[in-house]
């Protein structure tokens, strides 16, 4: 099996990311995002599986009405394609269950779904995630973007400190 290619230098990646973000503002008038799409998909899927589960006055009702033909849903489809292209071209694609080295497979899956839940809840509080609020809100120097990032890094570092033992590397045999 061939060796994976090296990742980009973070500053190079940052310049590329900043350029894509700038082009997004030029093309659409807003930045990049992700949870706008996951919210639409959740709303539409829930309404399809369990009609009546989302009532007309619910938070998600508007998302059900607007449907999936949204710029951000197409954009997230693009993120998936671009991510896969990066992994393939970089020879980094490998099927695995990733997570902390000290966590068993069921524990990793439990952490993944709990982390996702907290993240999905938080993104609705903030009306955006790390991309849509942290990055795209901060690029035009919006105070909300920076407030989001301060909360993100402070709470993330506190939780990261508590979970640090899980990330100790297994001794190499």
């Amino acid at each position: 099996m061939s060796q994976p290619r090296a990742l980009w230098n973070p500053y190079v990646a940052g310049v590329a990311l900043g350029t894509v973000l700038f082009l997004t503002f030029i093309a659409t008038g807003h930045g990049l995002g992700v949870t706008g799409a996951t919210t639409s998909i959740t709303a539409v899927t829930t309404a399809a599986i369990a009609p009546g589960a989302i009532s007309p006055h619910d938070y998600l009702a508007g998302y059900v009405r607007r449907g999936l033909d949204q710029w951000i849903v197409w954009e997230v489809l693009g993120v998936a394609i671009g991510g896969m292209a990066g992994a393939m071209l970089g020879r980094r694609f490998a099927k695995r269950i990733d997570g902390p080295p000290q966590a068993s497979t069921p524990a990793r899956l439990g952490l993944a779904i709990s982390g996702g839940l907290v993240s999905g809840l938080g993104a609705r509080f903030a009306l955006g995630c790390t991309s849509g609020m942290g990055l795209s809100g901060s690029a035009p120097l919006g105070a909300a973007g920076f407030l989001f990032l301060i909360g993100f890094f402070v709470a993330g570092a506190a939780a990261g400190f508590i979970l640090k033992p899980l990330w100790r590397r297994r001794s190499v045999t």
């Binding site: 997570g99 952490l111 993944a112 839940l117 907290v118 938080g122 609705r124 989001f148 909360g151």
Partner: peptide, 13 residues
């Protein structure tokens, strides 16, 4: 929201 997304990041990766 930022704090929750940060905690989710630490927990879920």
């Amino acid at each position: 929201g930022g704090m929750f997304v940060g905690i989710g990041f630490a927990v879920g990766g």
